[in-house]
Amino acid sequence: MNIIKSTLLGLSVAAASQMAMAATTGATVATVDPEADRIALQEYMKNRFPDTPMSEYVNGIYAVDAASRAQWEEIEEFPPYELDLEKGEELFNTPFANGKGYADCFENGGIGIRQNFPYWNDERKTVVTLEMAINECRMTNGEKPLGWKKGAIAEISAYMAYTSRGNEFAIEIPNDEAKAAYLDGKKFFYSKRGQLNLSCADCHLTGTNRLVRADLPSPALGHTTHFPVVRSKWGNIGTLHRRYEGCHRDSRSEYLKPQSETFRNLEYFQTYMSNGLIVNGPGARK
């Protein structure tokens, strides 16, 4: 009897794992497997772009399209974000009215820590992004928050990313509540929305490196590693959530605000996908 039971158990486990092999990881907190998702996304990219090493995905479209890469390398010779870095460093080191500064709000004085953002804050039950932490640091010290999309916040974020260049992203999902936030971000990424019925994945997974007019959508893998970016289209430096807003708007949706819970969850999902890749922000993009 015992033998029969254990055999049956063995069989059912085998059947279950076989199912998991053929399908995606789940749509529920109980079944979703972030690490398996990350590997599946890497596999997808490997199949699409066999000649691109994994470590190259931090470079967006320039990892997979040689022609745009040549242009980009030229731009990077005199990086368009250099002035922003200088300003960012200056802002970072300028004390608040109360004498304290950004360094007092962050681990290791805020240097070399970009790879730990965004993180799950279990006391507050929410995802905390770097930009959110920057503004909360200001408010804790009696300063006004900065606008989320461009200017000072992007410059400070750029400087903090720069001091972290080369560090590997190491996003953790410590418990089921964090997993629910991850799942929410994943679901947003893959859901078609707006009048144009477009998901993030439509352009950046299926449609990556295929032309929309003269533009090539970047691969979904490594999206978050190089932000903030100076985008030629913007003509200045901007944050990841500025880009999220633009993408969401492009689907002809009534778009969410930067740092809304959904966008933070999206960043959490996307950055987890980038685990193992290095911080290379700030970047320059078309």
Binding site: G207, R210, L211, V212, R213, A214
Partner: peptide
């Protein structure tokens, strides 16, 4: 439509290939 579908019309400019 030309953003994603090329077409052999001489006026075609910057056709996509989605």
């Amino acid at each position: 439509c030309v953003a994603c579908h090329n077409i052999q019309d001489p006026i075609t400019n910057q056709a996509g290939n989605q």
